[in-house]
Amino acid sequence: MSTPFIQCRELTRTYTRGTERITPLDKLDLDIDRGQFVALMGPSGSGKTTLLNLLAGIDSPTEGELLIGDTPVHSLSRGRLAAWRADHVGYIFQLYNLVPVLNAYENVELPLLLQSITRQERHRRVSNAMEAVGITDRHKHYPRQLSGGQEQRVAIARAIVTEPDLLLCDEPTGDLDRETATSIMDLLQRLNRDEGRTIVMVTHDPATTRWADTLLHLEKGRLLEHEEVTT
């Protein structure tokens, strides 16, 4: 058996506010294999976003270890983390978080500006990413000129343009209607199946879990059950 792509060992995140201590993530052990599509569910406040942020390297664990690939993410400095994120992680938000003063093309191009590649190569990759999410005809549109579904497609294009190993999605369809949500889920599944991207997706909507191959339940910072979803 090969080693898992993501290994969480007693992963803990504690917030201290005054005398109050909140531990949204409590000694979590979790392995995720390369190419897995994990859906993460749980009640509000159960630590889903906290876990996702740790996996994304935008937050650091208070205790425990987090290995992604060969990288000990828990021990990276702030600057190293930023560089690591740029190369390895694509983050997809519930509210898209596109930059309003940049058009669709420029939004997708943004993470590529952090890499040492030529202009032509950049253009090729942006075009490919936009084609992959089906918004080739919206290059020049600004976020406010796009529908929610289109905005999320641009956001996904931005997340995959650097060809990261890991895609993290925090309620990616939370703000979309059923039909649009379905097409976004189809898109994520394609990225998972055809391109082998590992996906961890937080969701509140049980209907979206059928696209995933693994369903995890988080409650009070601990995993409840490990259950394979039959697809």
């Binding site: 935008i58 930023a82 740029a86 190369d87 983050y91 978080n97 930059v99 309003p100 943004l110 952090l114």
Partner: peptide, 11 residues
């Protein structure tokens, strides 16, 4: 937006 840029890898 600043948080998003940091998530993308900007220092």
């Amino acid at each position: 937006e600043i948080g998003t840029l940091q998530t993308l890898g900007y220092s």
